[in-house]
Design a binder for these strands. Structure first.
Lengths: 161, 161
DNA sequence: CATAACCTTTCAGTTAAGTTTAAGGTCAAG
DNA sequence: CTTGACCTTAAACTTAACTGAAAGGTTATG
């Protein structure tokens, strides 16, 4: 199978397959006399495995260290351990997300709970002090010299040349 | 306040503050005759607000479009809407994580549930077919020509020069 | 006056996971 | 024999959010 055929079957681009090879995720396959790579049908499986693992949150680096030299010979211990660590990672992230979400929901409520008898600036001060977890003095917001926030066009970080 | 003082108070690096300015997150502040930037005390607040928003999952781009020209004058509607969208994003991510976690846990169980009477390669085949959600034929794993997985050193993508 | 601690700008480098482009070789059809 | 599809490599480019270095001006201190 040529790379084009493999790309079609696995649903990836040619460049991505070559990139995986250069990244050490795929063994360097045999070449025909003209230099073309020839893949065995199992290559499709390996690529599917890689993309599946990616969707589950594994980086290519992690995948590379897990993939065995032969699809039938996995390192059980390392594999199980990595899987467990990934589960732990997910759980940690889940906790962070739960917190973030709770804070955002509280913030929305807070903004919407503007007392009728205070002005916008005062409400901003009130909400801001909740966000930053500290009191904010009046002059801060009232001063005409608060010119910190801009709408400048985004500078591109170098022309990478 | 000079940039060094601000950096210390906000707990950021000088370069990061300058980067924020160039990225349009901070208004270009006044300069002393020698060219030094001078910040009002409120700059600390703005920086804290930015880092807080970042921790909550907002990109600098999002933050830039949300930050008002004046700390007292927020665009209520846009703000609330963005906050709600972010909450929705988090919820979507939470669902994905829940799924990924469930799959990983199932996978671990599956790997550990190797029947005593089959060999490793057969177990690998069994587990793999669960992962990829399809049957895998024996020759696939048994063939000696399955040489797809490599441990090649990682190629760096250009010297960026 | 030396020197250290500030400040300035500009540009290059970093990571991840690729994509895109340039320049060219090969192969099958008409 | 030319056209187009397919393959090759190397190297640059992309995004995000910075960091670091180079090269130089300023200011405070002894």
């Amino acid at each position: 199978m040529n790379i084009g055929e493999l790309a079609k079957r696995a649903g990836l681009t040619h460049s991505r397959i070559r990139f995986y090879e250069s990244a050490g995720l795929l063994k360097t396959v045999e070449r025909r006399p003209n230099g073309y790579r020839t893949y065995p049908p199992e290559a499709v499986l390996v690529l599917e495995l890689i993309t599946t693992a990616q969707k589950a949150g594994f980086s290519l680096d992690e995948i590379r260290t897990l993939l065995p030299p032969d699809l039938g010979q996995w390192d059980h211990g390392a594999l199980i351990e990595t899987l467990r660590r990934k589960v732990a990672d997910i759980e940690a992230l889940q906790m962070r997300l739960k917190q973030s979400k709770a804070q955002l929901v509280a913030l929305i409520k807070d903004i919407e709970a503007k007392p009728d008898d205070i002005d916008c600036a005062a409400n901003a001060r009130r909400v801001l002090s909740h966000i930053l977890g500290k009191e904010i003095e009046k002059p801060t917001m009232a001063a005409g010299d608060v010119k910190l926030l801009g709408r400048a066009s985004r500078r591109r970080t170098g022309s990478a040349g």
